[in-house]
Design a binder for these strands. Sequence first.
DNA 1: CTTGCCTCCGAAAACGTTTTCTGTCACTGT
DNA 2: ACAGTGACAGAAAACGTTTTCGGAGGCAAG
Lengths: 340, 340
Amino acid sequence: MSTIGRTDARITIDDVASRAGVSIATVSRVVNGRYGVSAATASRVQRVIDEMGYESNLVARSMRSQETRIIAVLVCGIEPFSAELLKGAADELEHSGYSLMIFSGGRSGTAGWEQRYLSQVSGTFADGTILVAPTVVDVEASHPVVAVDPHLGVANLATVVAENYDGARAAVEHLVSLGHRHIGFVAGRADLESARRREAGYRDGLAAAGLEFDPRLIAVGEFQEEAAANAARTLLTLPDRPTAIFAANDESAIQVVRVAAELGLSVPEDLSVVGFDNIPESALVEPPITTVDQSIQSLGREAVRLLLQLLRDGEPATPEHRTLPTRLVVRKSTGSPRRL
Amino acid sequence: MSTIGRTDARITIDDVASRAGVSIATVSRVVNGRYGVSAATASRVQRVIDEMGYESNLVARSMRSQETRIIAVLVCGIEPFSAELLKGAADELEHSGYSLMIFSGGRSGTAGWEQRYLSQVSGTFADGTILVAPTVVDVEASHPVVAVDPHLGVANLATVVAENYDGARAAVEHLVSLGHRHIGFVAGRADLESARRREAGYRDGLAAAGLEFDPRLIAVGEFQEEAAANAARTLLTLPDRPTAIFAANDESAIQVVRVAAELGLSVPEDLSVVGFDNIPESALVEPPITTVDQSIQSLGREAVRLLLQLLRDGEPATPEHRTLPTRLVVRKSTGSPRRL
DNA sequence: CTTGCCTCCGAAAACGTTTTCTGTCACTGT
DNA sequence: ACAGTGACAGAAAACGTTTTCGGAGGCAAG
């Protein structure tokens, strides 16, 4: 038989103190393992604590100590990217004594929700914040903040980013080495630095291969399903359609493959597709997608590591920017173009 | 140029009060829109608040009001199932004034981590808790708790579950109607009610079709990748291997397909596979998997709805159990057996 | 026996709110 | 002119901790 249930009145330090015949100061010292309590008293108090099942009130403790041991993560919504990131963050936080609090802005949220959350939460309910793919550039907080995949122009904030430029170049070089000369690009959210860097990598990759940049071969997918599908349709219905498409993230790449199928094109025979991110889904779809791995979980872990460091050592005058390597993962969605 | 930065000293209600030349009581009334403040004073105080960028300290507020407006979600790890559930929960919570706090037990956690978290957090840092697929049966908390996909034998706790039995029967009936007579089962975690119900549905589905239950056709996959793969291997290397396998969740079904491919069996020609859950991945893999949809997001939403109701109206004497319907989703992983 | 130190422990302040209680003042009705 | 009323605002208590400060007592050294 299950004994699941509810114990109603919460026991406070006063209850323990009076039952043990000591002052609350002593109880507090026992709870926190402070010195200044004799062994005899300590064990007696401890026994009472165990008997009564006392747990100290974290809110009261936070109020006094001015820290909550909570890390807030602000994400726009729980999609594959942020889910992976959360996983990494949660893993890294496992035995740190900190807990994770997730604020999901929701797509309905007007731009700037981050700032509203932050000014409420910072210095109040969380000791630090991890900001994922923010939609604003002006952020003010009264506690340490780390931005993952930051907004363009963010300068005065610690950041964790992947080597977006190198990754994009590797993707293009891969396509070029397969013989592609006509390579399209589904761009990402124009306001994110990562998207810009990937586009720069695409352009420079073309240039390095001696290929001319054709503005008609670039379409904006916004990192979103619908917009990406439209972008794919635009590119694939061009009179001289590209033989390969590099999509700025995997979700877009998946849409490209889907639209290609709709149009009767098979991948990789008629069209090669490369994505970016290496979200788990990219390996599961058919065909598995060649992509640039940025180890999203590592981003999450690194963000946590950096934030904990800031909490421990204080914030330096100039914020730290960390960059994580990327790596091309070749799967089945790329091959040589049919007609050279 | 970005103006991201840090404002250091946090402004308290005292700062506002002294600057506005009123008492802190008046400031508090203005902040919370209480009556008893003249329009003139109110607007003057409000101006000072805006000027100074004052935000009330949530910890202090919680301490006084005895509520934090935080909902804790205890998950074992962030895998596809819990990610979907979180998504639903976050959506439902969007405009409720509550925030989501996620505690990830981590696989390393010893059994019973839920209880440790709960006794710490309940009545202290969260107003209510959603417990996802708990590993223990004895839970005690000083605030409302809703269990999703509860442990076997949980009686005295509000729960939200899917129609696991009906779903499993539908899956088996689907296979039977395709002509399968030799149907294997990859079972789930033995300690979860959902897993038991699915197994019961499997057995009764067989019986209803007049098929004999063969204990060799059942192998335990534990809802985990590795164990599921082993279970699949066991079943598929039987002398008279089953022509169809029903897996107790999609992650297991994906492993079954993978192992089948390893063994040179093609799905659905040589083997039909049905999963359970309808996680996003199940539609992406090749072939897309026929599965029983339990709308995990709905489970999350329903859990939040139930919890908010408990918070609002108080807890009834006998806890409420809610059941959500399931629905068979036929995709490409099932077909008629090759040889009848 | 006094002085001084050390150990153990309790009183009380502090953290930043919300809310109750009380008081002041102006205004109304007689 | 005076009691009664209502609107407004401040003082203070309360929420449950942690920590500083100081006091009491024991013991060693002078």
